[in-house]
Measured scan of single mutants.
Amino acid sequence: PAHPYDRLKTTSTDPVSDIDVTRREAYLSSEEFKEKFGMTKEAFYKLPKWKQNKFKMAVQLF
């Protein structure tokens, strides 16, 4: 299930529990994912792991 970005980011005051914290981005809706990352999930997962992590750090999901 998708969760709002505000509850997934590492600085959230009301974090979602029971998620894989190493894959926070996977819980974003497709729309919100595209808004935050500027690309689709499919394109994101084709990137090298280090680049994925760099993007995730930039949007507080790492």
Rank of each mutant, 00 (worst) to 15 (best):
1 P>D: 12
1 P>Q: 13
1 P>W: 09
1 P>N: 11
1 P>T: 12
2 A>D: 12
3 H>I: 15
3 H>D: 04
3 H>N: 05
3 H>M: 08
3 H>W: 15
4 P>L: 08
4 P>S: 10
5 Y>M: 03
5 Y>F: 08
6 D>H: 01
6 D>Y: 01
6 D>T: 00
7 R>N: 07
7 R>G: 07
7 R>Q: 08
7 R>W: 08
8 L>V: 08
8 L>E: 07
8 L>T: 04
8 L>N: 05
9 K>L: 08
9 K>M: 12
9 K>S: 10
9 K>N: 11
9 K>W: 07
10 T>P: 02
10 T>I: 13
10 T>V: 13
11 T>V: 04
11 T>H: 06
11 T>K: 02
11 T>C: 15
11 T>Y: 06
12 S>W: 03
12 S>N: 03
12 S>I: 02
13 T>A: 10
13 T>F: 07
13 T>R: 11
13 T>Y: 07
13 T>I: 11
14 D>Y: 11
14 D>T: 06
15 P>E: 04
15 P>M: 04
15 P>R: 04
15 P>K: 04
16 V>W: 03
16 V>Y: 06
16 V>Q: 07
16 V>C: 10
16 V>R: 04
16 V>I: 11
17 S>Y: 15
17 S>I: 13
18 D>E: 09
18 D>N: 13
18 D>K: 05
18 D>L: 08
18 D>P: 07
19 I>Y: 04
19 I>S: 02
19 I>C: 11
19 I>W: 07
19 I>L: 04
20 D>G: 10
20 D>C: 12
20 D>Q: 02
21 V>D: 11
21 V>G: 07
21 V>H: 10
21 V>F: 11
22 T>R: 09
22 T>F: 03
22 T>E: 07
23 R>T: 08
23 R>F: 07
23 R>V: 04
23 R>E: 04
23 R>Y: 06
24 R>L: 13
24 R>W: 14
24 R>I: 11
24 R>Q: 04
25 E>W: 05
25 E>V: 09
25 E>F: 10
25 E>N: 04
25 E>H: 02
26 A>M: 14
26 A>K: 08
26 A>P: 03
26 A>N: 07
26 A>E: 10
27 Y>G: 04
27 Y>S: 05
27 Y>L: 05
27 Y>I: 03
27 Y>V: 03
28 L>D: 02
28 L>P: 03
28 L>C: 09
29 S>C: 08
29 S>N: 10
29 S>H: 08
29 S>I: 01
29 S>L: 02
30 S>K: 12
30 S>A: 14
30 S>L: 11
30 S>H: 13
30 S>C: 13
31 E>A: 12
31 E>M: 08
31 E>N: 08
31 E>W: 10
32 E>C: 11
32 E>A: 05
33 F>P: 01
33 F>L: 01
33 F>M: 01
33 F>V: 00
34 K>A: 14
34 K>R: 13
34 K>Q: 15
34 K>G: 11
35 E>C: 12
35 E>H: 10
35 E>F: 10
36 K>N: 02
36 K>L: 15
36 K>E: 01
37 F>T: 01
37 F>N: 00
37 F>Q: 00
38 G>C: 14
38 G>S: 08
39 M>W: 02
39 M>Q: 02
40 T>F: 03
40 T>H: 09
40 T>Q: 03
41 K>C: 08
41 K>L: 09
41 K>Y: 09
41 K>Q: 08
41 K>S: 06
41 K>N: 01
41 K>R: 11
41 K>G: 02
42 E>S: 11
42 E>D: 12
43 A>T: 13
43 A>K: 11
43 A>E: 15
43 A>D: 14
43 A>Y: 08
44 F>P: 00
44 F>Q: 00
45 Y>W: 06
45 Y>D: 02
45 Y>E: 11
45 Y>Q: 03
45 Y>T: 05
45 Y>K: 02
46 K>D: 12
46 K>P: 00
46 K>Q: 12
46 K>C: 14
47 L>S: 01
47 L>E: 01
47 L>G: 00
47 L>D: 00
47 L>R: 00
47 L>W: 02
47 L>Y: 07
47 L>M: 11
48 P>Y: 01
48 P>N: 02
48 P>C: 03
48 P>H: 01
49 K>W: 10
49 K>C: 14
49 K>F: 10
50 W>G: 02
50 W>Q: 02
51 K>I: 14
51 K>P: 00
52 Q>K: 01
52 Q>E: 00
52 Q>T: 00
52 Q>V: 01
52 Q>Y: 01
53 N>W: 10
53 N>G: 04
53 N>E: 11
53 N>C: 13
54 K>D: 10
54 K>S: 13
54 K>M: 14
55 F>C: 14
55 F>P: 00
55 F>T: 04
55 F>H: 11
55 F>D: 01
55 F>R: 08
56 K>F: 07
56 K>V: 04
56 K>P: 04
56 K>T: 01
56 K>I: 05
56 K>C: 12
57 M>E: 11
57 M>P: 00
57 M>Y: 09
58 A>L: 14
58 A>Q: 13
58 A>V: 08
59 V>I: 12
59 V>H: 09
60 Q>L: 15
60 Q>D: 15
61 L>P: 03
61 L>C: 14
62 F>G: 15
62 F>C: 15
62 F>I: 14
62 F>K: 13
62 F>V: 14
